[in-house]
Amino acid sequence: MIQVQDVSMRFKMSNDKITSIKELVTQTLRGKVQYNEFWALHDVNFEVKKGEVIGIIGRNGAGKSTILKIISGIMKPTTGNVVRYGNIVPMLELGSGFDYDLTGRENIFLNGAILGYSKEFLYEKYDEILAFSELGDFIHMPIRNYSSGMLMRLAFSIATVVNPEILIVDEILSVGDENFQEKSHARMLELMSGGTTVLFVSHSLKQIREMCNRVVWLDGGTVRMFDDVETVCDAYKL
């Protein structure tokens, strides 16, 4: 389903990020443009089979988000490549495509289009999204008037209305009030049990143990361990 082959990602960091022509010219003339190379990922290899739920754990800066971005196609790795079969719905950040001047309804269509849903699909599922988000008549208001909880509810409802073949999740399981949290949790479990392949980053070992089949442990940009959930979690804890 997904094959990550020898993926390395290098970031070049100049001492100051140069964002203007003047700076580039003056700095180059002075011979001051130094790049610090930083390998966020180094020769990462793993393979995910269809229907598996894979957890990714690691400390801050271990490269978890980077690997998710590379798998979603947002970033291109410096070397190596990723082979993926099936449509991917990345949930790296909820509601990143929202436009705050548009109404909730308009945003459903905009955000849906960005996530790659078709027009017919959205028209068909519109009521379902609205019902799940519990927004009621607020849906006709510009979303700049929404509370943060309402925004998150709307975003979650749009993102999870499909049954994607591959779902990529970056710690978003807790949104809204307790009631909605439970509901969204149930929806995630439903998605995961429905044959979807899931890649899932979390710092909560409890969640990982509960949901995943296998776990990738990233450490300093390399795979420290890739094995069954119990083995890795026990090792990680120590």
Partner: peptide, 9 residues
């Protein structure tokens, strides 16, 4: 930018 860093289009 917020879109480009989060969703592939």
């Amino acid at each position: 930018a917020s879109l480009i860093t989060k969703v592939y289009v």
